[in-house]
Write a protein that binds this DNA or RNA. Structure first.
Lengths: 163, 163
DNA sequence: TTCATATCGTCTCATATGAGATTAAAAGCG
DNA sequence: CGCTTTTAATCTCATATGAGACGATATGAA
């Protein structure tokens, strides 16, 4: 008997949703990362920190973590590099000596003013592939998938639906 | 004068498409990676190799690269590990001594038969957050974004629209 | 106060990644 | 046939990642 006769309906990887999300997202991230690197010498984590600090004016590292969704270590390293480059000012938090308050210095502010239009432009180029309707729908879909993923990850730790 | 007065309309990171794609995709990948790891001890690259070899029956490493969209190194390492675990059989390509032909051994085939239903189930749980219409639309949107990204990356190397 | 515990940011270490070098084999060309 | 170029897969190395340890500080209970 032939041993490789499939017992299950084969799975087509390129139709598999997590795979498709991953491939497309990696392509987009790679493209944007290349542009940021070329023009500003910034990695994506660094770029994100500049974006949120530039928008909020002044943030603790902890708040940057919340706003960017990145973990402590990644934010910490991005902050250190940005400070080394002279783009980010760090001073002690007045009420908590463990924490620090971050703000853009003048050079950082200058880069921020360039970063934002470039980001908008790149996003516009990307979005041009979609109708406004599709763009709106995509936003909703990403929210829904995000929520569902969070629920599924939660069911992991909990014992399941009590059965 | 206040130095932090914004000169550009601030960019809201959480509304920025590449960021949103990245966050949602990482969450999905992380969830699925955890499940594959727990049940089969497989990383995502390994899982992908099993999926395509299981579906195609017999593939060269080169073909796995094409089917999975992963780069040479990642595929090479996944193949080595799968072979070490006894899940994948490698033999020399009859017409090309540099290449190798991959197929699932009996244990690999057994895992494949478990992997596919689990993947379908997880995908179904995830897709349950969306209407069939949304699911179809998402597919189209991902295709369009993928194409546009490819175009934009291409314009990089080429000199732009000549002017 | 004094001690236990929690939190902030960083460091350490083990692992994942991919560009480019490397080795072996194949293909093209004379 | 010899020689150069290309290709398959792996290896090397430099970098990115995150879990958990760590030192310093803050908070809370007694």
């Amino acid at each position: 008997m032939p041993p490789s006769k499939p017992l299950v309906e084969p799975l087509i990887l390129r139709d598999f949703l997590p795979y498709r999300l991953s491939v497309v997202t990696e392509a987009v991230s790679s493209l944007f990362a290349t542009r940021y690197q070329e023009r500003f010498g910034l990695s994506i984590p660094e770029w994100r920190v500049v974006a949120v600090v530039g928008q909020q004016g002044e943030l603790s590292t902890q708040q940057v973590i919340e706003h960017t969704g990145m973990d402590r270590v990644r934010v910490s390293r991005a902050v250190i590099r940005l400070a080394d480059k002279g783009l980010l000012e760090r001073r002690a938090h007045p009420q908590d000596q463990r924490a620090q308050v971050l703000r853009l210095g003048e050079p950082g502010r200058a880069i921020y003013e360039e970063i934002v239009p470039l980001a908008r432009d790149l996003q516009a180029q990307l979005s041009a592939a979609l109708t406004p309707e599709e763009l709106r729908t995509l936003g909703e879909i990403l929210d829904k998938i995000g929520h569902r993923t969070h629920e599924m990850a939660g069911e992991e730790e909990a014992g399941g639906p009590g059965g």
